[in-house]
Design a protein around this nucleic acid. Structure first.
Lengths: 335, 335
DNA sequence: TTGGCCTGTTGACACGTTTTAATACAGCCG
DNA sequence: CGGCTGTATTAAAACGTGTCAACAGGCCAA
C-alpha cells in the first residue's frame, strides 16, 4: 500500500522479476516489451504505489515535459482565457504548464524566467513586461523555444499578437463617430507595449478625423485593474470630465465606470466609455461595456502550437509572426 | 556569453579555480565559503551564464522547492484571489508555486496530483473536487504535506475553510427578511461540498423561519460559471420565476442576472438575487450584486503558512482545522 | 615546539532514471 | 548442424547536483 520513504524503479523491477531497464521501457516505450512482462511490471507498479521521479527523468533526458507561461496578470480574465487555450493544446500532448505571473514587473518576470530555466522547460510562452527581450534571446540561445504572446516579434522569435494600433483606432474612431470632441485615454504604465500601441492607434484616428492630438488627454495609472480605473476617474473628475473615455483594458474601464457612477456621472449620457479585451464581465456590467474584442483563446492556442512545433524540430523551424485583427463590440456604454 | 549545450557546476568550478563542491556551497550555503572565493565563483557564474539544473538539485535533495496549488477553476476570481495569498507567502521563502486547474473534475484532479507527486513538490494546497480524500492521504503518507483549502478536514489533515453552512443561512435569512416566500437555489453539481453545505445552511434558515423545505427549489447546473447561470435562468423562466434566488457563487449569479435582464425580468423588483464569494466584479454588475463575502486572500495566506510549517517540521506538527466566518454584503440586487 | 581547534576547501559517492551496446534465445533457411 | 535474423531483456554508464567525511593550514594556548 503506502510505503514510506521512496519506492523506485529498482524495487518495482525486483518485484516483477525483471531488470530496471525493462521497467523504464514499460514506462516510456511499452510496445518494446512483451505483453506478459508488461502486465507483470504494471501490476508491480500498482502494488507498490510507484510514482516515477520526474526530476531523475528530466535530468537524464536533458529536458522536461513542461512549458512555461508567463503572463502580466493572472487576475485579468484576458490572460486566463489565453491560459485556457494553452492548456487545451498542451494537455493533449501530455505536457504540463507552469503558470507564472509577472505582475507587469520586469523584476518578477526575470525571477520567473530563471525558475523556468532551472526547471529546464522545453519552451516558454510569454507576454513580456517591457521591451527588453535580451533575456528571452538568451533563453532561446540556450535551446529553450520562445514564443511571444500578445507581443509582435521582430524576426528572430515567434510571436502571436493582435494589431493594437488597429484596435486603438477602432475604439477612438467609434467614439468620434458618436460625436465626441474631448477624449481621455486611461492607460497603465507606458512601459507596457500594448498601452503605447493602442494610444498610437487612438491618435491615428484623431488625425484621420482632422482633430489635433491635444483632443486626447492621457491619464496614466500604475496598475491596469479596477483600482487603477477608480484612480483615473478621480483624476478626471478633478480636471473636468471629457465627452468620451477610452480605456486600455476592460478592468480599467470597469473601475472607471463604477467610480463615475458613484460621482453621479451618467454613462453614456454624460460620457461615453469603451474598454479593451471584451472580457466576459464587460457585458454584464452596470452599463454593458463597449469593447475591442480579441481572439483571446486562439492567441493561446496558436502560440502553443507554434511553440511545440519549434520544440519538436528546432533546426528546421522558421520563426513566424502572426497578427490577428481586433473587432469592435458596441454596447450600451457608448451608444 | 551564451554557450550552447550545457554549462554545469564543473565548468564554473574550473573557471573559478575551485572544486565543484565549493560552487555548490556558494549556491546553497554562501556563509560557509570565504568572501574572496565566493566573489570569484559568483563572477564565474555570471561570465558563463550558468543556471543551476533544478532537476539534479531536486533529485539529490529528495524534494523540490515548489508547492502545488490545485484549484477548482482558475477562471473564478475567488481562486485567483486565493492564489494571490499563496504566492505572496511562498515567494517570501523563495519557493515556487505550481498552479493546477482541476476544473471540478476528479479525473483531472488525479492527473494533476500525479504530476505534482512526480515533481516531488514539498506540499500540496488543494480544494478537492469531491469527497474522496484517499489520494491526498496517500500523498501525505508519502511525505508530502497537504492542506485543504476551502474544505474542512476531519482531523488527520490541515485545513482552512469558511463556514459554508453559516453562509447559506446568512444569505437565505436575508432573503426571507426581505419578504421572499418562494426561493430558488442555483448550484453546481451536488458532488461539490460547498454547494451541499450552502444548501444545508439555506434550509436551516428556512426551518428557523418556520417554512417548509419545499419553499426552496434546487436548480442544478453542470458548471459553476456564467454559462451555468444562464442555463439556470432558462429553467427558472420556464418553470415560473420565484421571489428570490440564491446562487452558490457569484459567477452563477452574474449569469442569472444577465439572462433575467434579457428576458425582461427586473432585479430586485421582480426577483431578489444574492450570490456567494463577493468577487470584485459583483459590485460593478448591471445591478450591483448582494453576496456572501469570504476572507479569500487570507484563506490562501494562512493555508500556505500552515503548509510550510508542516514542511519544516513534519514530526512535531499538529494538524489544525481553521474555520472563518463569512459575512453578508447587501447591495442593490436584494434591496 | 606540540597539540588542538577552527575555518575553508576538497573528493568521491549517491540520488533515480534513461539509454545504448551487448546478450540470450528462438526460429528459419541452407 | 551452423549461421543468420529478429525479438526480448539486461548490465552499465551516464545526467548534474548535494552532502559529508576528510583534510589542509593557520592560529592560539600550553
Amino acid at each position: 500500500m503506502s510505503t514510506l520513504g521512496t519506492v523506485g524503479i529498482k524495487e518495482v523491477a525486483q518485484r516483477a522479476g525483471v531488470s530496471p531497464g525493462t521497467v523504464s521501457n514499460v514506462l516510456n516505450r511499452p510496445e518494446r516489451v512483451a505483453v506478459a512482462t508488461r502486465a507483470r511490471v504494471q501490476q508491480a507498479i500498482r502494488e507498490l504505489g510507484f510514482v516515477r521521479n520526474g526530476s531523475a527523468a528530466t535530468l537524464r533526458a536533458g529536458q522536461s515535459r513542461a512549458i512555461g507561461l508567463v503572463v502580466l496578470d493572472v487576475g485579468n480574465p484576458f490572460f486566463v482565457e489565453v491560459a485556457r487555450g494553452v492548456e487545451d493544446v498542451v494537455s493533449d500532448r501530455d505536457h504540463a504548464v507552469i503558470l507564472c505571473n509577472s505582475g507587469e514587473s520586469p523584476g518578477r518576470e526575470a525571477r520567473n524566467l530563471r525558475v523556468l530555466a532551472e526547471q529546464r522547460v522545453r519552451g516558454v510562452l510569454i507576454t513580456p513586461a517591457d521591451e527588453d527581450l535580451s533575456m528571452l534571446e538568451g533563453l532561446r540561445d540556450r535551446g529553450v523555444a520562445v514564443v511571444l504572446v500578445d507581443h509582435p516579434a521582430t524576426g528572430d522569435l515567434c510571436s502571436v499578437s493582435v494589431d493594437d494600433v488597429a484596435g486603438g483606432d477602432l475604439a477612438v474612431t467609434h467614439l468620434l463617430d458618436r460625436g465626441a470632441e474631448r477624449l481621455a485615454y486611461v492607460t497603465g504604465p507606458l512601459g507596457i507595449r500594448q498601452c503605447v500601441e493602442r494610444r498610437k492607434g487612438a491618435r491615428r484616428a484623431l488625425r484621420n478625423a482632422g482633430l489635433p492630438a491635444r483632443a486626447l488627454e492621457d491619464v496614466v495609472v500604475p496598475e491596469m485593474n479596477a483600482g487603477g480605473g477608480a484612480l483615473a476617474a478621480e483624476k478626471l473628475l478633478a480636471g473636468g470630465v471629457p465627452d468620451a473615455i477610452f480605456c486600455a483594458n476592460d478592468l480599467l474601464a470597469l473601475g472607471v465606470l463604477r467610480a463615475l457612477a458613484q460621482a453621479g456621472v451618467r454613462v453614456p449620457d454624460d460620457v461615453a466609455l469603451i474598454g479593451y479585451d471584451d472580457i466576459e464581465f464587460s457585458s454584464a456590467a452596470a452599463v454593458p461595456l463597449s469593447s475591442i474584442r480579441q481572439p483571446t483563446y486562439q492567441l493561446g492556442k496558436i502560440a502553443t502550437e507554434l511553440l511545440l512545433e519549434e520544440c519538436d524540430d528546432p533546426s528546421g523551424h522558421a520563426h513566424q509572426q502572426i497578427m490577428f485583427q481586433p473587432e469592435l463590440v458596441v454596447r450600451e456604454s457608448s451608444r
